[in-house]
Each structure stands twice: as C-alpha cells, then as structure tokens.
Amino acid sequence: MAFLVVLVVAVAVVVLVMRAASAGGPGGSFGRPPRPRQPRPPRSSRPVAPDDDPEFLRELERRSRRDGGSPA
C-alpha cells in the first residue's frame, strides 16, 4: 500500500513540474531567456563521394586512356 502512495506522489510531482515548465511562457522553462536560433549554413553542392565528382571521373578516364585501358 505504501508503494502505491509513493508512486502516486511521484507521478503528481512529475505532472506539476511539467506544467510549471510549460507555463514558463516564451522564455522557456524556469524563466530562462530564449536562445536565438542560428540559421543553418547552406549545404554545399559539392560531390559527396568520388564517383559523384565529374572532375574525378574525367581524371580517371584520362588515366585509363593513358595507361592503355588497364583498370588500375
């Protein structure tokens, strides 16, 4: 029976803390001023992998022709 009372009290405390945090207004929880959000830098359009890079593919093709078509 005592376990049930402790459980109910713990749930009530959690609910009250969550309500107090959400009622803090625009300043966020517990009266802290909001942090200004930094805009994300634009993603570069660089190739992600070597086989996406046209310059790398041209160099590979050039080496392949120079070496007589050998794969390595």
Rank of each mutant, 00 (worst) to 15 (best):
R66I: 02
A72E: 09
S45D: 15
A21T: 06
L4A: 05
D51R: 10
P26L: 08
E59W: 00
L7K: 05
E61S: 09
L16Q: 09
G31P: 02
P50M: 13
V17H: 07
S44I: 06
S64R: 15
V14T: 14
L60G: 13
P33L: 11
P34L: 06
F3E: 14
R63Y: 04
R62Y: 06
R66M: 04
A20S: 01
V13G: 13
R58L: 07
S22I: 10
A49I: 13
L16F: 09
A12E: 02
R58N: 08
S29W: 06
D67M: 01
F56R: 12
A12N: 04
P47F: 15
A23I: 00
R32S: 03
P71V: 06
A10L: 15
P71S: 10
S44Y: 01
F3M: 02
A2C: 04
A49M: 12
V9N: 02
P41D: 10
V48S: 15
D53K: 07
P36H: 08
P34A: 12
P50F: 13
V17G: 05
A20D: 00
G31S: 07
P47Y: 13
E55G: 08
V15N: 07
R43C: 14
S22K: 08
G28L: 07
R63G: 03
P47T: 15
R40A: 11
P33M: 11
P54G: 09
R63F: 08
R58M: 05
V5D: 04
V5Y: 01
Q38I: 13
D52K: 14
R35S: 14
A21H: 00
G69S: 03
S64A: 03
P34F: 04
P26W: 02
A23S: 12
R43Y: 04
V11A: 15
V8R: 01
R62F: 05
Q38T: 15
L57E: 12
G28C: 11
A72H: 04
V5M: 05
A21N: 06
P39T: 13
G27A: 06
V5R: 10
A10T: 10
A21S: 09
V9Q: 08
P71I: 05
P34M: 03
V6S: 04
F30W: 15
P54F: 14
D51N: 11
V15L: 06
A21C: 10
S22M: 11
P36Q: 08
P42C: 06
A23D: 06
P33Y: 06
V13W: 01
P42M: 10
P33V: 10
L60Y: 14
F56E: 13
F56P: 01
G25L: 00
A2Q: 04
P71F: 11
A49S: 12
R19V: 12
E61F: 00
R37Y: 07
D67K: 00
R65V: 05
D53T: 07
V9L: 11
R62W: 04
R32V: 01
D67C: 01
R40Y: 04
L7F: 05
G69I: 01
P54I: 12
V8M: 07
F3V: 00
L16A: 12
E61R: 07
D51I: 09
E55C: 01
R58A: 11
G27P: 00
V11D: 01
P36A: 15
V17S: 07
R19E: 03
F3T: 05
D67G: 03
V9T: 09
